[in-house]
Computed example of a mutant assay.
Amino acid sequence: MITAHVESFEENLDYLKPLLPIHYQELALNQDKVPLSPQFDKYIAAENSGELLFIVLRNAGELIGYFIGFVAPGLHYSTCLTCQMDIFYVHPDHRGSGAGFQLFKFVEDQCKKRGVQRLFVGSKLHKDASWLFERLGYSPVETYYSVWLGD
């Protein structure tokens, strides 16, 4: 049975680390130029200040997915507590089971408990999950563009 939980990022780092390369290989752009090298200390500092929302999906105790978001007043809208998604992932073996819906319904519930008024999430266009957010009733609001400017 798949369950969702708010857990400590720092305490789960050793369990999270094996999933990050799988997530990176599937979704990251410019992998030939930008290696996976998370600033774990920044995540831990955000968690310690109460600004990190770390939610895990577990199947019989095994970590199979996660959501990481940052909770703070909006930079342009200081009166609006906002959760900005950093990353989310559901292991491919558990997609199609409703795990993504379960994850984001739990994210919504936890955001509401924290007093969050607005939640921003996103989807990579080359591995599109927009259908998930549309089925959850989210509205598209912006498209990001990227260009490699390095060497």
Rank of each mutant, 00 (worst) to 15 (best):
F70I: 11
I44L: 12
N59D: 14
I64G: 02
P92I: 01
H91K: 02
G65E: 04
V90T: 07
G50L: 06
S78P: 08
Q84C: 05
N48K: 15
A45E: 15
A99H: 11
K105H: 04
I68G: 10
R58F: 12
G61R: 04
E62M: 07
L52C: 15
H94D: 03
H94G: 03
V90H: 01
G50H: 06
L81E: 00
F67C: 05
Y43H: 09
M85R: 11
I64Q: 01
Y43K: 12
L52I: 15
Q102T: 10
Y89I: 00
G61V: 03
A46R: 14
G96P: 05
F88L: 03
I64H: 02
P73T: 08
L63R: 02
G100P: 04
G96C: 08
H76M: 06
R95C: 03
K42Q: 15
H91R: 02
V107R: 07
N59M: 13
L63A: 04
V107M: 11
T79K: 12
A46E: 15
T79Q: 09
R95P: 03
G50W: 06
L52N: 14
C80N: 01
I64L: 02
I68V: 12
D93S: 09
D93N: 13
P73R: 05
V90D: 01
T82A: 10
S78C: 00
E62G: 01
V90G: 01
I64Y: 02
S97F: 08
G100D: 04
L103N: 10
I64T: 04
V90L: 01
L81T: 01
I44C: 10
G61N: 07
F70C: 07
P73G: 06
V71T: 08
V56A: 15
D86H: 08
C83N: 10
F54T: 04
A99S: 13
V107E: 08
I44Y: 14
T82R: 14
L75Q: 06
C80T: 06
S97H: 05
E47V: 14
S97K: 09
R58C: 14
V107A: 09
F101W: 10
G69R: 10
K42G: 00
K42D: 13
G69T: 05
F88Q: 12
V56M: 11
N48T: 11
G69L: 10
G100M: 04
V90P: 00
S97C: 04
V107I: 09
Q102R: 07
Q102V: 04
D41S: 15
L75P: 08
A99Y: 11
G98S: 11
C80M: 07
G98L: 10
G69V: 09
G98W: 08
R95W: 05
G96Y: 06
L52R: 14
A45I: 02
G100C: 03
F54H: 12
A72G: 06
G100I: 03
C83R: 06
A60R: 15
L75V: 07
R95S: 02
A60Y: 15
